[in-house]
Design a protein around this nucleic acid. Sequence first.
DNA 1: GTCTATACAACGATAGAC
DNA 2: GTCTATCGTTGTATAGAC
Lengths: 203, 203
Amino acid sequence: MVAAGAQPGPRRRGRRPGGSDTRGQLLEAARVEFAERGYEGATVRRIADRAGVDAAMVNHWFGGKEALFTASLDIPIDPVELLADILPGDPEKIGERVVERFLTVWDATGGGPLAAMIQSIASHDAAARMMREFIGNVLVGRIVAAVSPDQHELRAGLCGAQVFGMGMVRYVLKFEPLASADHATLVAAVAPSIQRYLTGPLP
Amino acid sequence: MVAAGAQPGPRRRGRRPGGSDTRGQLLEAARVEFAERGYEGATVRRIADRAGVDAAMVNHWFGGKEALFTASLDIPIDPVELLADILPGDPEKIGERVVERFLTVWDATGGGPLAAMIQSIASHDAAARMMREFIGNVLVGRIVAAVSPDQHELRAGLCGAQVFGMGMVRYVLKFEPLASADHATLVAAVAPSIQRYLTGPLP
DNA sequence: GTCTATACAACGATAGAC
DNA sequence: GTCTATCGTTGTATAGAC
């Protein structure tokens, strides 16, 4: 579609006076768009639109769509807050806190971002690599480092698989009654598995 | 639609054998392409090419790409074979057989189809609905119907979540060492959870 | 003046619709 | 088969910083 006659704001060409943070605004817009639409669904033009700049700025500042994507994944969520909520307390009940916490986070967002993230992971190796490193080194990695006696990486993978699967079935597949079950039911059902993956005996 | 070539000889009674089955060939081609490339990755032209017909046939027979997609999902895999391999034997060891069986299936395909399926589920409501019904009514549904004492749907969802998550982390995310772990290790680690979801006590 | 940030235009590719 | 829309990308002119 051609630009409509009513322009929302004729953007001037040339360098902006003052400190314009185009790069930062592109990053912010990219996080939203990638989260909402996945890697394929998000378009460079739309991200640039949201940032209020031209699409060419993506190439200028990042080199392309993929580079923008990886750059935007630097801090998807705040791990400090998450870990501060999970780690303190009885180590024998950390499985319950993990399940409860992820349910709370995903319930709030409605599952859209989770579906977008899964879609990105499944369709783009770069996204899979990013998420893999993020889960292993930051999210689950720090949990197992804090509470697991051995085999930290394997435990992290098992724990991630259980949490990921629960999110997928509940929020993406929307499989009933799991999709509508309350937190207490799911915590009681799933937490023992998480607890065993984290602190229980492993082969 | 073009009929088979005019053949010399006496006129046959009844339905003519070898009539062109454009619709069926499109379905078959669509299953392969959708499985290999996901919904977005598969193109109407390529499916039609594989079927040996013109792309316009997709519109003619199905009405569009999405309708072809849903139609192609009718029978993704053969559930009879799967269940015949899992159900017989000690009910207390069915968890082990479930894990072993899915690992074998997915190891053989290398995870590509799984990634494509996950991508389709995450990006298309129609795919999610299809898979939900397929899992609930056919795959896991028959397992819980055979071995679970109660709460069949919840148990099916929990079981599906664990299996799905394991496949996602192992084949799509490729999270080590889980991605390279042998079957025995994963069966020993995951089967107890599956077993509890299927036959154990639930809240 | 030089350099950099910016917007605009247009290109080649591709996919879906008609 | 053709048409149209849209994608990511690139080239280029311009406005302002230094």
